[in-house]
Structure formats: C-alpha cells, structure tokens
Design a protein around this nucleic acid. Structure first.
Lengths: 249, 249
DNA sequence: TAGTGGTCTAGACCACAGC
DNA sequence: CTGTGGTCTAGACCACTAC
C-alpha cells in the first residue's frame, strides 16, 4: 500500500464536495428557484440572512446574488430586497460564428467566390443605415460561400469606409469579410433579424437554386462605438443551413 | 454668487463624472479593447498593475475583470494572466417572448385556435427526445395563433406528462402553452434551431398559405434539471414573422 | 521563487424604501 | 428609525505557471 492519503487527495475531495462558498450559496438559491421554492416575484432571503445561514461573509453572498442577477434569475432593488425574476421572456444565446470557422469545424472545405468588391456611391437606403450621406463612397462586396463546392451563403455587404479603409485590399478568397472586420473593429454591437423568404432572381442564380426555394435570410447591422460599420444580407438555401442556439440559465 | 456647491451637488457631479471605481476600471479596459489597444490574444494588465494604476483595492479590480470575463471579452488563466479574447464567434442574445405578449405589445389581438389537445402514445422519435419509452403516454397539442385574425404561427407541441400533469386541463384559448409551462417549470434550458423551409400540407392549410411559401421554422426542445419537458415545432409564414435580436458586449 | 489569478474575511460608508 | 442592497478596503491564503 502506498503512502496514506496525501494532502492533495484530501484537498481534491474537499473541493469536489464543497466547491467554493459563493458557489454553494448560488446553487442553493438556483435550486430553490428551479423547484419553485420562491415563486416569480416573491421575496427571497436577504443578504444578511444568507450570511448567518451559510456562515460566510457578506461579500461572498453578494457575489452569488450579483451573478444570479446578471443571469436574469433574480431582480434586486436597493432598500427593498431580492426577488425571484419573472421569466416571462427567455433570452437565448445565439452564437454567430464566422462561416469559414463553422465549415472548417465540420471538416469541410470552404471556398469564397468574389462576385463584387468595389467602391460605390451610397444609395439613400444604405447611407441611412450606415450613417453616411447619400452619394458618399461606400464599399460593396458580394461573395458566395461554398461548402464542399455547394453554395451555402450569398453575402451581400456594405462597409463604412471610415471604419475599414483597407477593406477592398483584402483577399476575400482567404479571409472572410466577417473575420477581417472583427480584427479591424473587435468590439461591436449588432442588431439582426432572421426571416424566411424567397431569394431574389440574382441570389437564386448565384446559389444555384430555384426561385421558389425557401431561404433563411439574416440581415445584420453592426456598429462600433456609435459608428455604423457594416450592413450585411446573408441568404442561405433553407435546405442547407440552419441557426442553432441554446438557453441556459 | 449663490451659495457654494452643496454636498448634494458635489456628490451628484462626482458620481456623474467618476461613477463607481469598478466601473471605471472596467470601462478603461473595455475602451482599450474597442480601440485595439490590446489585440486579441494579447496579455492585458495584471490585477496588481491595475491596483496601483487606479489606486483601488484588488477586490475592485477583480470585479471589473470578472465581469469582462463573464461577458466574454477577456479570458483569464491562473498563473498566466488576463488575455484579450478572440471574438471569432459572437454570442448574440435572442429573446424569445411568449407569442401572446409579443402580439399584445404591438397592440394587436391574439387568438388561439386549438386543433388538437389530447394524450397519445409516443412515437419512437418523440419518445427519444422527451426521455420516454415508445408507447408511453405523451400530451400533444396543435394550436394556430392568429394576430388580428391572420394566422401567424402553427404550434405543434409534445409535452412530458410527468412535468405538467395538468397540461390538457389548460384553456389554451386564454393561456398559451409557453406561458403555462413557464409557470409549471420556471427554470429551464432549451436548445433550438431556426431554419427556412416549406410547410407541410397540413400546416399550409392551417396557416392559409400556399404549399410553396417559405416558412420560418423553429424547433425547440426544453429540459428542466435533466428532465425533458417539451418539444415544439413552430411554423410561421415567412412573410409575417421574423426573429430579431442584438449583440451588445 | 516570484508573479499570476481565485477566493474569502470583517469590517465600513452610502443610498434608498418603508414605517 | 431600521433593514435593504451597492460598493469599497486592506489584508489574507491558496493554486497554478514559469523560470
């Protein structure tokens, strides 16, 4: 028989059983919420109650509650208390990956065919959404992405030249616009909509599908620190693409 | 000249200018990330550096960094340091609201037509996804939701009876299944997929649309603490519905 | 051994809500 | 006035990494 239980083993065991105090408080509250111990809108234990109940300091309890608040499971109000949240609307996390990564992750080949990459004068509609004046210069690219030689996405994109002056010099056959723009402006906000619709005649031709085939259309507008960066319309054949996501409290 | 600055005024000004110390640290780092002061993957200032730089305690710095980590803007490793995150994949927040609330919020009328609400024996496919044995009892509802008398969603749903025994007693003309299930099981996880496709013949008939019309189809599976609750297929005419969301670091 | 993050403590002051 | 959350401090011990 080897040496008796080492410190390491004892510590590992203790950790796996007790985990961190703040996590124990958090799990206690989370579990109570999941079994409706506190109904939505009900008053939950105060910080000081949890302090005495768990025998930990207030900072520890505060951290647990703050994380639950960040996750949307409780709402807190100064002077009032902590309340179980109404989960009437569920915020799900939808991960939008760079298409090149997504295809590579599947072990498939990704190929970009550049149909357009030039400077244009902005139309009124485009200018409005990119914060430009109509007639100002705007970069416009039209790229069809293939997965194993099968067209997967038609990417029609307008870019604000002020945010990415080198945009047109990029080799889009090796770097996707999304990837390039992420490097140029790594922190941004985006609004998007997802809808089903028929492709335009041009899109149908580029994607090699029928004019009636349902397509998943994502329209995304990206801004960085109040400055609009880019406007993209991504059209996918419905039979070849779907968006997946999950919600996890 | 009026009375010298009151305490209140001084405090308000101080607050609006300085805000909370942890927020100042956070904003400093966030701003640096947005202007590429630290490129993705680069080493960022250590906690102790920030402590001396801002003249605050370590707990304050820690909080700022922990929140940035939770937001996915930095990655941290014990013994190594804090690194600017690669934002190769963007997690967007997609809010799925109860359809009744969504329609009401637009100031429109919502009407549910119940085409089916009964117990069935689970098929192999449904049983597998709900954690049941084939042939076990499962609740099945088929409801068409209308917005101002126009069909908007065909909701085909299977429910695990163990999670919602009273499901079939619910009056679905006044309470949506989503709303009811949220009350029965307030804390849950969901996986879903969004795709474009043609409706089935039955769905086309129920929605009053052509068999070729593109539809936005959401398939959602919901589980609560390892127990599958419900499986839903939501079919919307592409011309009448879209999903919107946003990403905000 | 030195530097990093991960966590906890025991106090403290403040702002806010309700009585 | 009391109780609530919101925040900060100055220290502490630990685990991990790299040299």
């Amino acid at each position: 028989m080897p040496v008796p239980a080492t410190d390491d083993a004892a510590r590992t065991k203790a950790r796996s059983v007790k985990s961190a105090p703040y996590a124990r408080v958090k799990d206690f509250l989370k579990h109570g919420l999941s079994v409706s111990r506190w109904a939505p809108g009900a008053l939950m234990p105060s910080e000081s109650e949890l302090v005495t109940q768990f025998g930990v300091s207030r900072m520890t309890v505060t951290r647990a509650l703050r994380e639950l608040q960040a996750e949307g499971l409780v709402t807190r109000a100064q002077g009032l208390g902590t309340y179980a949240a109404h989960l009437g609307q569920v915020s799900a996390t939808l991960t939008i990956r760079d298409l090149h990564e997504e295809i590579s992750a599947r072990g498939h080949r990704h190929q970009s065919v550049v149909h357009l990459a030039r400077a244009e004068r902005a139309s009124a509609a485009v200018a409005g959404k990119l914060g430009l004046e109509p007639g100002e210069t705007v970069f416009h690219s039209l790229i069809v992405h293939h997965e194993n030689e099968l067209p997967l996405q038609c990417e029609d994109r307008y870019v604000n030249p002020a945010c990415a002056p080198q945009y047109l010099q990029t080799d889009f056959t090796t770097i996707t616009p999304t990837h390039y723009l992420l490097e140029v402006a790594p922190l941004w906000e985006a609004q998007y909509s997802i809808e089903a619709g028929a492709p335009s005649a041009k899109e149908a031709r580029l994607l090699g599908i029928g004019a009636q085939e349902p397509c998943l259309i994502i329209v995304r507008r990206t801004v960085n620190r109040e400055v609009p960066i880019t406007l993209a319309r991504l059209v996918h054949p419905g039979s070849r693409y779907r968006v997946e996501g999950q919600f996890k409290p």
